[in-house]
Structure formats: structure tokens, C-alpha cells
């Protein structure tokens, strides 16, 4: 990348102004591009998970073979929970999540469990252990996790009836955090 200036170093006859200008332009372009790249990387490294705006759409195929697409769930409150079987804090909240799901099932609330970088065997065992009945599926190629820019698991995103994100909870949830959030979102008006 610094070979361009070296170009001018000792070339004989002395470089023409045009050639020199070219070298300078190239050098500064490279430096500025590089700095821009670092700025972008820094911004990305410091960004937290997505917590507002339209929730990125995705389709997930559950372990049971059923599929669900987020954009088709308008009018309902959607809770998206990222988890993994190897994650002990996920276990802390698993029972509470399932309990809350059963409480709100059929009342305009959908739960989606997104199993992030996990092994199937352990994931099935986890689902059995906590008797989870809402849809759960693997995040193939970590596309969903990247779209939501998750920082780790567990992380829970709250999607309002109009498809907008209404915040995110990092780490395991405890009663009554989820209940309160769902009640709040259910109270929102949706045409």
C-alpha cells in the first residue's frame, strides 16, 4: 500500500508532474479508505443489538418442520428469543419463557425461539427438558442473529403489532419482566 510513494523515490528521469500527482492521489485515497473502514469497524464494534425501527424480517423453519415468517405476523405481538443449549443463563429463563407463552397463547402473542449456533442433539434435549411448545428453529448460517446484531445469548427482542422493535432484553429474564412488556405491547392500538 505504500509502494506507490516508493515509485517516486529514485526513478530517473525525475517523475513527470502527472505521474507524481497520480501517486499522491492513490496514496491519499488508500489512507482515507482505510480510515473509513476502521471508522465503520469501530461503529460496528460499539453498536449494541438492534432495538428500534422495523424488525428485520426472517423466515424460520422450526425443529418440528413448521415455518413462520415474521412479516406475516402483523397485528400480533412477537417475542423473539435467541438461545443456545450450551448457555447456562438461557436455562435460567427457559421455564419462565414457556410459562409466559402458555399464559398468553392465543391472545395475540407469538413466541419465536431462535436457536443460535447449536447442535441439534443438545437443542432437542433442551426443548424436551423445558417442555417448550412455541416454535423453535435453528438460525441457519446465523443470518437472523446478524440481522439483529445480537451480542450473545440469551437475548430477547420485543416486536410490536406494527412490526416495529420495541426494545431488547440482554441476559435472562425474570418474572414479571416479560409479562409487563407483553401487556404494554398488547395495549398498543393497531388498525
Amino acid at each position: 500500500m505504500t509502494q506507490a510513494p516508493m515509485n517516486e523515490q529514485g526513478a530517473q528521469p525525475p517523475p513527470t508532474p502527472g505521474r507524481k500527482k497520480f501517486g499522491v492521489t492513490i496514496t491519499f485515497t488508500i489512507i482515507l479508505t482505510f480510515l473509513a473502514l476502521m471508522a465503520w469497524g469501530l461503529k460496528r464494534a460499539q453498536a449494541g443489538p438492534l432495538d428500534k425501527g422495523l424488525a428485520p424480517d426472517f423466515t424460520i423453519t422450526g425443529f418440528d418442520g413448521k415455518t413462520v415468517t415474521l412479516s406475516e405476523l402483523r397485528g400480533q405481538v412477537v417475542i423473539i428469543n435467541f438461545w443456545a443449549s450450551w448457555c447456562p443463563p438461557c436455562r435460567e429463563e427457559a421455564a419462565y419463557l414457556e410459562e409466559t407463552w402458555r399464559k398468553y397463547e392465543g391472545k395475540g402473542v407469538i413466541f419465536i425461539g431462535v436457536d443460535w449456533v447449536d447442535t441439534e442433539k443438545e437443542a432437542f434435549a433442551y426443548i424436551d427438558e423445558f417442555d417448550i411448545t412455541y416454535i423453535n428453529g435453528p438460525d441457519i448460517g446465523t443470518r437472523i442473529a446478524q440481522a439483529y446484531n445480537i451480542q450473545g445469548v440469551p437475548e430477547t427482542f420485543f416486536v410490536a403489532k406494527n412490526g416495529e422493535l420495541r426494545g431488547v432484553h440482554i441476559g435472562p429474564m425474570k418474572y414479571p419482566q416479560l409479562d409487563e412488556k407483553i401487556d404494554e405491547l398488547l395495549a398498543e392500538q393497531y388498525p
Binding site: 460499539q46 449494541g48 443456545a84 450450551w86 448457555c87 447456562p88 443463563p89 438461557c90 451480542q151 450473545g152 445469548v153 440469551p154 440482554i170 441476559g171 435472562p172
Partner: peptide, 20 residues
């Protein structure tokens, strides 16, 4: 608060990664 959030995330990650 952002930093604290990050810290707690890291903590969770670390805890889960280094489970006995």
C-alpha cells in the same frame, strides 16, 4: 449504561463459555 450492558453481556458469554 451502554458499557455496563456490554459488561453484563460479556459476563454472560464468559460464564456460559467456561461452564464446568
Amino acid at each position: 449504561t451502554m458499557r455496563r450492558k456490554l459488561m453484563s453481556v460479556l459476563l454472560i458469554l464468559v460464564m456460559s463459555l467456561y461452564a464446568v
